[in-house]
């Protein structure tokens, strides 16, 4: 039975919303693993630092496995200090998103995060030897490669996690594009990203929503939805399905994925529910089907698009 994981909050949420999101998760859902911590911008980490231990404690008492997520880009002194602190011996399990952390861990167990670029069996075997017991695959890896990874992960005794919901992380940069959009720069940003709980939409010149800016990170405008692919993912050896938090009701999203994974809800009905829970972004599953990442490719289990839209509107 595959597990459900709540990935780290990638956006800059107010600290109260951040805390309450996790408190609610502790109380209400069948999510098995919760990733906590700042992945995108070192400047944000101090904002929720005062509540992080209380949140971790509450989640742990509720029976969740708690993993501390770490930065995807490590370059500045502050970045490096955060990584050094997160990797101190005796600390909690971390999700590694940059090789800097591996230097400090020196072979101690870790979870390889989606930004570590584990694209193939060679990288998987190496990281398993270095202490990775669990690996989150890159978002653009297609089904055939996920299946190939599944065969090797099984042999190595490594758990495999794949994102199945939420906007798709696409790029990371040295420059903060939230600050740039507000005529600022990273060092004096005044946290202008805190007004966009799902990131800032970039539309094309012909007014089509395209990308999402989240500080130094760029994400897809479309929302990944692999609810039709859960059975195939499980059969391929994927042990954990990751939901990436958006500002919508993630407890309800988790309930939908849990029900489909457990065979209690069919995927077409799940699409309808997910579209009602978060109507702001279209679905995408193109990367999995080796196509453009923004594409939504209807599966045999899908309802026709018109039927789904009508259902979502009702």
């Amino acid at each position: 039975m595959p597990a459900l994981a709540m990935g780290p909050i990638l956006y800059n949420w107010p600290v109260d919303a951040w805390r309450d999101f996790y408190f609610r998760l502790a109380d209400e859902t069948a999510v098995d693993t919760v990733y906590l911590g700042e992945v995108v911008c070192a400047k944000r980490a101090p904002l929720f630092a005062p509540v992080v231990e209380a949140v971790a404690d509450r989640l742990t008492r509720a029976g969740k496995q708690v993993v501390r997520a770490t930065l995807a880009q490590v370059a500045t002194t502050v970045d490096r200090q955060l990584i050094a602190a997160a990797t101190e011996p005796g600390g909690p399990m971390i999700e590694v998103n940059d090789t800097s952390a591996l230097y400090h861990l020196g072979g101690r167990p870790f979870i390889a995060g989606p930004f570590l670029n584990v694209y193939n069996e060679g990288a998987l075997a190496f990281l398993a030897e270095q202490g990775a017991a669990h690996v989150v695959l890159p978002a653009e890896l297609p089904a055939a490669s996920i299946a190939a990874m599944g065969r090797h992960a099984d042999r190595l005794g490594v758990a495999l996690e794949v994102q199945v919901y939420g906007r798709i992380p696409l790029a990371i940069s040295a420059r903060c594009y939230h600050a740039r959009a507000h005529g600022r720069m990273k060092d004096n940003c005044r946290f202008v990203c805190d007004g966009d709980p799902d990131g800032m939409v970039l539309k094309t010149l012909d007014d089509r929503p395209f990308l999402i800016v989240n500080g130094i990170q760029t994400l897809s405008h479309a929302c990944l939805n692999l609810v039709h692919e859960l059975d195939d993912l499980a059969a391929a050896g994927v042990t954990t399905f990751r939901l990436s938090p958006q500002s919508c009701d993630m407890v309800a999203v988790a309930a939908v994925f849990r029900a489909v994974a457990d065979g209690l809800l069919d995927a077409a009905e799940a699409d309808d529910r997910l579209a009602r829970i978060w109507p702001d972004a279209p679905f995408a599953n193109g990367f999995y089907h080796q196509s453009e990442g923004h594409r939504w490719m209807p599966q045999p289990s899908s309802k026709p698009q018109e039927v789904r839209q009508a259902a979502a509107a009702s």
């Binding site: 670029n117 653009e140 940069s173």
Partner: peptide, 12 residues
């Protein structure tokens, strides 16, 4: 974007 960490072209 940081090289090796960009799927923008892949997305489009």
């Amino acid at each position: 974007m940081v090289e090796g960490r960009c799927a923008l072209s892949s997305y489009a």
